[in-house]
Amino acid sequence: MASVSMKDVALAAGVSQPAVSYAYNRPSKLSQAQREHILEVAASLGYPGPNVLGRSLRSGKIGAIGLMMMDKLSLAFADPCTIALLRGISEVGELENVALTLFPLNNNRLVGRSPAANHGSLALRGLVDGLIISTLPDDHPAVLAVVKQNIPFVVIDSPLVDDSFFVGIDDRGAARTQMQHLLDLGHRKIGVIIDRLNPDGYRGPIDPQRFKSASERIVRERLTGYVEAASAAGLAFEDLSIIEAGGLDSTSGQAAAFTLLTSNDVTAVVACSDVMAIACMKTAHALNRNVPQTLSVIGFDDIPEAVQLGLTTIGQPMVEKGVYAARMLTEQLNAPAGTRLEPEQKIFATKLIVRTSTLKI
């Protein structure tokens, strides 16, 4: 007996093939009644739903997707946010039999210095059918190559690519909330720890020129939010003690925190990630600075360790971002040949989570 296809369901339900895809992958595009009708017809025909692996095999594709990320491959297994994204991607049922390839784009074997060089990269040589791109710098050559070759992709957080599927948050607005929390507690001597503005290895104080040169969108947006909130409270850029860690790991964060806390008389620190914030708390302890009695610290992300340490932070749905991005990608891979899907942007909400690491002065 021949298997039932999406086309069969569309004909029987009296709808288009994209509508059938929407019923499984983007239900918000349909009314509840229309979606229920499509699913009932599909069930009556014995249609199990779109299957990325099956479609890939029928089309000569290999049934694999890729995750493009910066830094060393080991970061994917150490960074809490990357782990959460991977968990979200893996929770999408349609991908349970699909291979996932990780592409660390600081590796010269995987990415060249120009879009032309990237045409020969592993990611573009048929190893994957589609890509999830996470937190790459602006105008990264690998992204330009993906766009040029029309490979299906979804961006998580950065970079912003015209006319593309995107999942993220309002980084600038959330950062304003971070800074405002410290300001509302009466702090005016505030330090800022960011991981990096450019992937060039720089570590140390940030001046306006360095700030303007930033290519890392997330950190740029968050630092902009800090500066805007501080400015509204009468604090200039120069009134903030801003240190760039030059990396995403705890060791880099502790070094940045040591520089900040031993060279500035700050009463509070806002960090662009929980990893940086927790590194600051550890360094403060080593320097006999009590948190929050003599130093308030606020982070960003709400990773599991933040809960354990009582870190005040901005919560964002990292796992859900991975789930949503994976569903966006499967929708593109399952779309009928020749069908152009309208790109979607999903901006998740964030929230301030007040714990015990911040205190009014």
Rank of each mutant, 00 (worst) to 15 (best):
S273R: 05
G60Y: 08
P336Q: 01
I243L: 13
A268L: 02
P199Q: 11
R220N: 12
H119K: 12
D302T: 00
A13P: 10
M179I: 10
F258I: 10
I314N: 04
H37V: 03
K321T: 01
L311M: 03
A142W: 04
N25A: 13
D79I: 12
K346G: 08
L127P: 03
G14K: 00
T358A: 01
R87F: 03
D184H: 08
L105F: 09
G315V: 06
G66S: 08
R220K: 14
S59P: 11
D163G: 01
M318W: 02
A256L: 07
P199V: 03
P205K: 05
P141I: 04
L295F: 05
D239G: 05
Q178K: 06
D71K: 12
S90G: 12
P80V: 03
R172A: 12
P208Q: 06
H285D: 15
Y47I: 00
R210I: 04
K212R: 15
F165A: 12
I83D: 08
E221K: 12
I194Y: 02
R26V: 11
R125K: 15
A43D: 06
S74H: 01
V143N: 00
V41M: 00
N97P: 05
L341Q: 06
V297F: 07
P317W: 08
S231D: 12
L67I: 14
E331F: 07
G234V: 02
I83A: 13
V354I: 15
A335H: 02
E36K: 11
V266I: 10
I62K: 13
I218T: 15
I151E: 10
A13W: 04
Q17D: 10
H119G: 10
D138F: 09
T135L: 12
K321V: 02
A284F: 00
G322T: 00
L329I: 03
T313F: 00
Q254F: 04
P304F: 06
M276I: 04
G130N: 11
